[in-house]
Every structure is written in C-alpha cells, then in structure tokens.
Nucleic acid binder design. Structure first.
Lengths: 141, 141
DNA sequence: ATTCATTTTGCAAGTCATTTGCATTTACAT
DNA sequence: ATGTAAATGCAAATGACTTGCAAAATGAAT
C-alpha cells in the first residue's frame, strides 16, 4: 500500500485489474523516465516476469494511452515510442545518428498558428513538433 | 519533347531510365498535387498501366525521395504519405476525422528553437510540425 | 536498326511491428 | 470459497513495406 502510484489508483477507478504484468509495465515507466519502444518495454519486463507475452505489452500500452497515462510518439523511424504523459506538454529533439530523444519545452503552436487555423475553420486538438538532426556526440563524429 | 518535366530531366541526368511506370508515377504527382499513400499512387497508376506492381511503386517512391523530388510524410496514422517536394517548405494540418491534410506556410522552427538547440549542442537538419484536429466539415458533425 | 550492358520490373516470398481469436488463467467483489 | 468479468499467453493473422531473382525494357554504342 505504501508504493501504490497514482497510476494504479487511476486504473482501479476505471475498473481495471492490477495484474503483475500491468504493475511491472507501469513501474518501469515510473522508475526509468524516457521514451521506449514496445520491444524495450517487453525486454525490461521480461527480465522480472519471464512469462510475459508481447501481446500483453501492446494491449497494456494501448490501454495506458487511452487513459492518458502514457503517450505514443510516432517519430520518423516508423517504430512507436511510448513515454509517461507528464503534465505540461513538450516536444522532442531527435538525433538521426543515435536515435536519442531529448525533450524541449518550446511549443510553437499557440503563439503562431491560432489565427490561421481559425481562418481555415480548423479545430486543433493536438500537434506534433519534432526537430531532427545530430546531437552533440553524433555531430562530432 | 513538349511535356518533358524537370523531374524527368533530373532523372536522366542521374542515369535513371524513363520507364512507363516511372513516368506515370511522376505524372500523377504533377497532375494532382496532394499527399498520397503508396496505395493511392498504386491504384491511380494501375488504372493506366494495369500490370504495374506494388514493389515498383515503393521502389520509385524511395528513389524520388532520395533525389529530393518527392517528400515522405510520416503522420500519426502510421501510413506514409508522399507529396511533391515544392521549394519553400511547409507543414500540415491533419484532420482526425476524414484524414484530410492541408498545408500551412507557418514554420515555427527558426524563430523559436534556435538558441535552445545551440545551447544543447544540437545540429538541426530538419523538423516536423503537424497540427491534428477537426476540419470545418468534420467539426460540424 | 541491332546489339548489349545495365537498369528496372513483376512476381513471390520474406520482414517486422502490431493485432486478433480463443481457450485458459487471474483478480477481486460477493 | 465462489463466480464472473477482465486479462493473459499462445499462435496465427494482418498490413505496410522490402528483397531476391529471373525476365523484360531502356538507351548508349555500334
């Protein structure tokens, strides 16, 4: 009861059961903040619960996405990445060399796009802003 | 000789052969500007050249991308879209209802991100800015 | 016009991330 | 302890995209 996270509470509130697998996935995201592929989540959880299956990973990632607990990032590589959905949204700087993703707090949307969007009659609900290039390490090479 | 586009010339300059299939793909992008999936290109070209194969579509889309003639757009849906690579880059407004994509000329990158990126030692080469929401038609529903 | 090296194509099979159907297992309210 | 709805594991399916290879087509040289 001591280490029950807000996430587990939110799941319970919505009638979701707390299985070992689900707990481990959540714990992983909380313990190691970052952007992970389903593969990476799988490998990490498999280290503790060897019977876990890939479909369980995907089903839970989708569930957590739908509940707004994690966020799916569709970046250029074509492989989805997932991260904890922190309050105060941010965007990403993606290194084309090593694939590393860093967060940036800059958000261009409100300041620039609003009046153009209104003129188009477009109702914006979200946006994506990603900068690709080479990080400090990779540009030295 | 009359209707040889700059694209066909560019291909020739690079030692590429002008096959019927290749011509048709190019012609399609020039005749109907927009953002298309490989599937859509395939169907359109198949209407004229029924023997064309999907792998020919993909191979040519990749070729044209590498030559900077078309651009691949990785949007949220997970299916790649392709568009003619016009000079003066732009970004997109994507309707989550009907999937329609409209172009916007706004580009937030230079104005906002430069000094933060420099501080990170990140060398930006490109970026993506996409706004999702509902277009005029879809928000009326 | 014919020849020929090279490129490109069609076809079929293969990837690879992700999804789905289904029988079995598990969580948890009673 | 029991029952039921939810979740899991497994295996097979999906769907976008890629690849190997033999056959066909291009275009430069003859």
């Amino acid at each position: 009861m001591s280490n029950t996270s807000w996430i587990e509470n939110k799941l319970k509130e919505n009638g979701c059961k707390l299985t070992e697998q689900r707990r481990l996935i959540i714990k992983f995201f909380e313990a190691e903040p970052g952007h992970y592929t389903a593969q990476e989540v799988f490998e990490k959880v498999k280290g503790i619960c060897s019977k876990i299956n890939f479909s369980t990973i995907y089903r839970n990632l989708e569930l957590l996405c739908n509940m707004g607990i994690i966020k799916k990032l569709d970046i250029e590589s074509g492989i989805s990445h997932y991260e904890l959905n922190k309050p105060g949204h941010h965007h990403h700087v993606v290194c084309k060399g090593c694939g590393d993703m860093k967060e940036i707090d800059i958000c261009p949307c409100e300041t620039i796009a609003n009046k153009e969007l209104k003129a188009m009659g477009f109702q914006a609900t979200e946006h994506k802003f990603e900068i690709y290039g080479y990080c400090r390490n990779c540009s030295k090479k």
